[in-house]
Write a protein that binds this DNA or RNA. Sequence first.
DNA 1: TAGTAACTTCACATCGTGTGTATTTGCTAA
DNA 2: TTAGCAAATACACACGATGTGAAGTTACTA
Lengths: 204, 204
Amino acid sequence: MAKTIGEPRNARSRRTCSAILNATRQVIETEGFETLTMAAVAQRAGVSRRAVYLHFTSRADLLSALLRHLGEAEELGQSLERVWAAPDAVSAVDEWARHLARAHPRILPIARAVEEVRRTDADAAELREAIMERWRKGCRRLATWLEDEGRLAIPWTVDAAADMMWALMSWDLLEGLTIERDWSQERYAEAMALLLRSTFVRQA
Amino acid sequence: MAKTIGEPRNARSRRTCSAILNATRQVIETEGFETLTMAAVAQRAGVSRRAVYLHFTSRADLLSALLRHLGEAEELGQSLERVWAAPDAVSAVDEWARHLARAHPRILPIARAVEEVRRTDADAAELREAIMERWRKGCRRLATWLEDEGRLAIPWTVDAAADMMWALMSWDLLEGLTIERDWSQERYAEAMALLLRSTFVRQA
DNA sequence: TAGTAACTTCACATCGTGTGTATTTGCTAA
DNA sequence: TTAGCAAATACACACGATGTGAAGTTACTA
C-alpha cells in the first residue's frame, strides 16, 4: 500500500523522475548507501530536494521504486530464463549458480539499502517479502525438478532443499566472497555450482 | 583506535556501565536495533542520557563494546573448543556446524547492529574485521585439517574451502533459516553439517 | 566527614527527514 | 501564440536523533 504518487503525465515530470532514479543509483554505487541522503540525490539529479518528495513519498519509497525499476528494466528475467531452459534438473542447478553470479552483483548495493529500510518501512518490507517469495518459489521449482528426476540427494526433502537453496542466495554470502574475499564472478559461480551439486544432487 | 574512556575505578561507575550494556542488549532483543536510541538505552538503564556518553563516546562505540563484551563473557570460546577437541577432521566439521547453531543465534541481533554502524564508524569496522579474521583463521584450520587427513574433497583447495566456509557463516543465512523460515537450532545444525560434509569432505 | 569522581539537568549545535506555502517555470492544448 | 495548469523552486518550519558544554548535585571512598 505504497502511497502512490499519480502517474506523471508531463514530459518534464517523467524526465525528472528518471533523473532522480539514476542519481540515486549513482550515489549508492559511487559513495555507498550510508551517505545516501535526499539532498545528495537531489543535487546529483540537478533538482531541488523538495522535488524529490514530489515523486517519492519518502527515502524508503525511493529505494523501493529503484529496486522495482531494476527488477523490471534490467535483463534479470532473461538471466533466469536460462535456468528453466536447461535440459535437465542437474544442469538447471548449474545454471542457477551462474544466474546468481550474473544477476545479483548488479543489484547488491540497492538490495542492501532496501534491506536496511525495510526494518522501519512497511512498504519496503512488503516489496522485499514479495521478491523473496518469488525466489523461494524458484528454489522450490528447482528442488521439485530434482526430485522428479530422482536426483534429489538423500536425506533432503523438497521443502528443506528449497529453503536452504533460498538461504544460500544470501547477500552476505555474495558480498563476502566477491567483495571482501575478492572472488571473481566466475569463481563465485563455479564454487556455488559445486556446492549446490555436492549438496543437493544425488549421483546417478 | 577507540577513543577509550578511562577505566572506571568507582563502584558506582562500574554498576552504571554494566547497566547500560545490559539495557542496550535488552532494547535490541526486545525492540530490535532499528529503535535503539541512546535515549531508550538510558531510560532502560535508569540513567540520564548524558551519562551514557560518559561511558561510551558514541552509539557505535556502545555497540562495539557490547559485542566485545559478549565475545568475552559468553561461553562462545567454550563452544568453539569442542570443534578443536574433535577426534578427526570430519567430526570437527560436524562440530563446527553445531557450534554455529549454538553460538551465533545469541549474538545475531547485536552483530546485525554492528554490521550497520561499521559502514560509518571506523572503530566498529575495525572490531568487525578483527572478528572476521579470527573466523577465517578458524575456517582455514578446519580446511587444513581435512587436507592433512586426505579428506578435503576435490577440487577444493585449502584457501578456497576456507573462504567458502567463512562465507557460509553469513548472518543472512542464519537469519533466513532460523527466523524467516523458522527452522530450529537443531535443524539448522544438521542441515549445515550435511551441507559442509557433502561439499568439503571427500568420501573415505 | 571532606574531597572528588560520577551523575544530573538543561541548553545548544548539527544534520537528516518530511511538510507547508507562495512563487516561478515550462509543457501543451486550443 | 498564448492561456492555463502541472511541475518545480525557494524558503521556512517541526521533529527527532546524535553529540557536546557547563554548572550544580549525589554518593563513593579514603
